[in-house]
Amino acid sequence: MEQGTVKWFNAEKGFGFIERENGDDVFVHFSAIQGDGFKSLDEGQAVTFDVEEGQRGPQAANVQKA
């Protein structure tokens, strides 16, 4: 798993971006967030995640709040 920081996340649209430790950004969809209840992330929040190849390039999977 990688570690990163939430760059931004739009809860209304259900997606955002995580900044990886290497400085690259990776797309995150709310469906990739682990846990119960409303799935959202806060700007600046530390997270761990896997990276999978999506239809439009790399995207975060198995996102967990650190």
Rank of each mutant, 00 (worst) to 15 (best):
G37H: 07
G37C: 08
G4H: 01
D50C: 09
V28I: 07
I18S: 00
V63N: 00
L41C: 03
E12S: 13
N22F: 12
G35F: 08
A46H: 15
Q55A: 15
K7A: 05
I33L: 07
R20F: 05
V26G: 00
D50N: 13
T5K: 14
E53C: 10
V63C: 04
K13D: 04
A11K: 15
P58H: 07
G16Y: 01
V51D: 02
V28F: 14
F38T: 07
S31D: 04
F49P: 00
L41K: 02
A60L: 02
V6W: 02
G16I: 01
V63W: 00
F30D: 03
F49K: 00
L41W: 04
G44H: 09
V51E: 04
I33K: 01
A66H: 13
D25G: 05
Q3S: 14
R20P: 04
D42G: 10
Q55K: 15
Q55C: 09
E21G: 11
P58K: 11
R20Q: 07
S31Q: 07
K39D: 05
Q59A: 07
E52I: 15
D36Y: 10
A11I: 13
K65T: 10
K13E: 05
E2S: 10
E52M: 13
G37L: 06
K13W: 09
H29S: 04
V63L: 05
G35N: 06
V26N: 00
R20D: 05
G16E: 00
E2W: 14
A46C: 10
I33H: 02
T48Y: 12
K13I: 09
V26H: 00
E2Q: 13
N22L: 11
E12M: 14
V51Q: 04
Q34I: 14
E19F: 14
V28C: 06
M1P: 12
Q3R: 15
S40G: 08
N10K: 09
G14W: 02
T5M: 10
K13N: 06
V26D: 00
K13A: 08
G57F: 05
F17A: 03
S31H: 08
A11M: 10
D36F: 10
F9Y: 10
M1N: 13
E2C: 10
P58D: 05
Q59H: 10
D24Y: 11
Q64L: 10
G23L: 11
D25S: 09
F49N: 00
F9Q: 01
E2P: 05
K7T: 04
E2H: 15
F17T: 03
E52L: 12
D50R: 08
L41E: 02
F27L: 04
Q64D: 06
K65F: 10
E53L: 13
Q59K: 10
E2M: 13
E21N: 13
I18C: 01
L41I: 05
G37Q: 06
V47A: 02
F30G: 04
H29M: 05
Q55D: 12
R56Q: 11
Q59F: 14
E52A: 11
P58I: 10
E2R: 07
E53S: 10
S40K: 11
T5H: 15
E19C: 11
N22C: 13
E12A: 15
E53G: 06
F49C: 02
F49E: 00
T48M: 11
E19P: 01
D24I: 14
F15A: 02
Q3V: 13
N10F: 07
A61F: 11
G23F: 08
G35M: 13
I33Q: 02
G35C: 08
P58V: 09
E19D: 08
D25W: 13
